[in-house]
């Protein structure tokens, strides 16, 4: 990770790493409302079979997940919980917002208790429209996300949020340095990785 963070990878290597990441997405399912059933149909039913895309739908905790599918109506009471579980996911993390409610409030656009879109709480990568979207639509959303990951500059993605390291820690070669750390650390880590 430190390697990716510091140096511009050669294109074939970053392509390979991206290929691997895009095809081993661990999905944390966030079933909220009607869409949860269509998500369950996409992930759980033999007809749609999401695992052929390399998506693994059953991590027990957000701490193991790369991708979260927010499917359903987000209420004002639920929004802080979503924020907190999103923060528990490790970088790099991706969000698919599934269904009109999660996209913009949907049919509850005028409700007093519904958040008008999950993107007011967390950043969203792919929006899947529909009320609810068919399982095929969710699969297309996942494919779109995979294409996006494939084209991604990993360096930029990793710099998205700084990783906090205690300042008193020894400048070990294995500790990922925050962005803007001294250039020697990155040189050492690059050297060690090559060895």
């Amino acid at each position: 990770m430190a390697l990716v963070d510091k140096v511009k990878l050669p294109k074939p290597l970053s392509w390979l790493l991206n290929f691997g990441r895009a095809r081993s997405l661990w999905v944390y399912q966030w079933g909220l409302a009607c869409c949860a059933i269509e998500m369950g149909a996409a992930f759980g039913s033999p007809r749609y079979d999401v695992m052929r895309l390399g998506v693994i739908p059953f991590p027990a905790s957000p701490r193991q997940a790369d991708l979260v599918v927010i499917s359903g109506t987000v209420t004002d009471k639920m929004a802080p919980v979503i924020r907190r579980l999103y923060e528990q996911m490790p970088e790099p993390k991706y969000v698919i917002s599934m269904g009109s409610c999660a996209n913009c409030g949907g049919p509850y656009w005028d409700s007093y208790s519904v958040t008008k879109g999950v993107d007011q709480v967390i950043p969203v990568d792919v929006y899947v429209p529909g009320c609810p979207p068919r399982p095929e639509a969710l699969l297309e959303g996942i494919v779109l996300l995979q294409e996006r990951i494939q084209r991604e500059d990993m360096q930029e993605r990793w710099r998205g949020e700084p990783i906090v390291v205690p300042t008193s820690a020894p400048s070990s070669t294995r500790v990922p340095a925050p962005p803007g750390a001294s250039s020697t650390a990155s040189a050492v880590s690059a050297g060690s990785a090559q060895a």
Partner: peptide, 27 residues
Amino acid sequence: IYLPTEFEGHPLRKDFPLLARAVKPWP
């Protein structure tokens, strides 16, 4: 029972306004 504890007002009273409707035209 439903709303967050800090919620003010009683939604099903007729004088409770739907703010989204007041500020946004019917989409």
